[in-house]
């Protein structure tokens, strides 16, 4: 019993010491490495800016590690860039072995390596990576999928629109990331989104409609107005939101009708959208909603009136049956 304790005590003493030593060693080594890295980065930063800026630079004189740091700096800069600057970055990486390495690493055993590779490929701006990346959307590791989605967005890979939206709906890629990726792809995603807006799955339709609201323009209004009659409430609500974002008069009638929708969050989104569209004819109906509807829908209506017709709001707020939301909106107008 005592020996056991003694051994335990000794083991613990040894372990404690190891931790102490590890702490100290790590501290100093990390500090040193960081300093070195920062210095290298500072040196290479102007080189990176030159390359991005279009200067002809000969990088053959750099050591491997310096090349790696340079690649990282350029990759980070690329996140902010579009247009010819980004094309230059793409050209730079295509010429190096870094691109091939990262592409290969998409198949690495270790999940973190695959994720890092997926991420870097987005920074490298080389479109050749797209087909391989689309396959990685099905990786078994969540981080890899997220990094892949992000990079597909950065590469503006419109052919990835459908897989991205589907991954969003199914839930294998976080909503925020997939959404952002499709936004990054931009208007070229619209054809794919239009197709998905006709899907048999309501969740897919809803997601596509929502994105059309962000990426589309007046020519998409017709589709959205049609979606206001969808059987799924979620789709109707998103269509209303999208119409509001596009702020097209074409949707005004459909939105006003939607104030009578059975489902309250459709009414809510319709009210909000009417405020963005600026439809004066909807004001009487909105006033009624602001007085009678459920809390959130009523407030949305009051705020919409505040945007469309402030005078009408102030007048209505004086009436005896105005209700709390009209009062609040009126007070805010006067503040």
């Amino acid at each position: 019993m005592l020996e056991a304790l003694g051994i335990a005590a000794l083991t613990l003493a040894v372990l404690s010491t190891i931790f102490l030593v590890a702490l100290v060693l790590r501290r100093t080594s990390v500090a040193r490495e960081e300093r070195r890295r920062l210095q290298a980065e500072r040196r290479l930063r102007s080189l990176a800016l030159d390359i991005v800026g279009g200067e002809e630079i000969d990088v053959s004189g750099l050591a491997t590690e310096e090349l790696a740091i340079l690649a990282e700096v350029i990759g980070r800069l690329s996140r902010n860039l579009s247009g010819d600057a980004r094309r230059r970055i793409s050209a730079y990486f295509a010429g190096t072995s870094a691109f091939a390495t990262e592409l290969r690493s998409l198949g690495d055993r270790r999940a973190w390596r695959r994720a890092t590779a997926a991420y870097r490929l987005g920074d490298m701006a080389c479109d050749d990576a797209v087909p391989r990346l689309i396959r990685s959307l099905n990786d078994r590791d969540a981080d890899v999928r997220s990094a892949t989605a992000r990079s597909l967005g950065r590469l503006q890979a419109h052919e990835a629109t459908e897989p991205l939206l589907l991954s969003l709906v199914v839930g294998v890629v976080p909503r925020a990331i997939a959404f952002r990726a499709i936004l990054d792809i931009g208007a070229t995603a619209l054809p794919g989104l239009h197709r998905l807006a006709r899907s048999s799955d309501a969740a897919v339709r809803a997601g596509a409609i929502e994105l059309i609201g962000w990426l589309g323009d007046a020519s998409d209004a017709e589709l959205l107005v049609g979606a206001m009659n969808d059987s799924a409430a979620e789709v109707r609500a998103r269509a209303a939101g999208a119409l509001g974002r596009l702020a097209e008069d074409e949707g005004a009638t459909a939105l006003t009708d939607a104030l009578d929708d059975r489902i309250y969050f459709v009414r809510l989104h319709a009210a909000r959208a009417l405020g963005q569209v600026g439809e004066r004819e909807a004001v009487p109906r909105l006033l009624q909603q602001a007085r009678e509807d459920r809390f959130e829908a009523a407030r949305a209506a009051a705020e919409a009136i505040s945007r469309i017709d402030p005078q009408a709001l102030l007048a209505a707020a004086e009436l005896p049956d105005a209700g709390p939301h009209l009062h609040e909106a009126a007070d805010l107008l006067k503040a």
């Binding site: 019993m1 005592l2 304790l5 003694g6 335990a8 005590a9 613990l12 003493a13 372990l15 404690s16 931790f19 102490l20 590890a22 702490l23 790590r26």
Partner: peptide
């Protein structure tokens, strides 16, 4: 035994604190 036990207990505590620190 008593002393041994306390030494072990304290050492373990220190180890845990150090681990948290690290």
């Amino acid at each position: 035994f008593l002393v041994g036990f306390f030494v072990v207990a304290v050492l373990l505590g220190i180890l845990l604190s150090l681990a948290a620190l690290t």
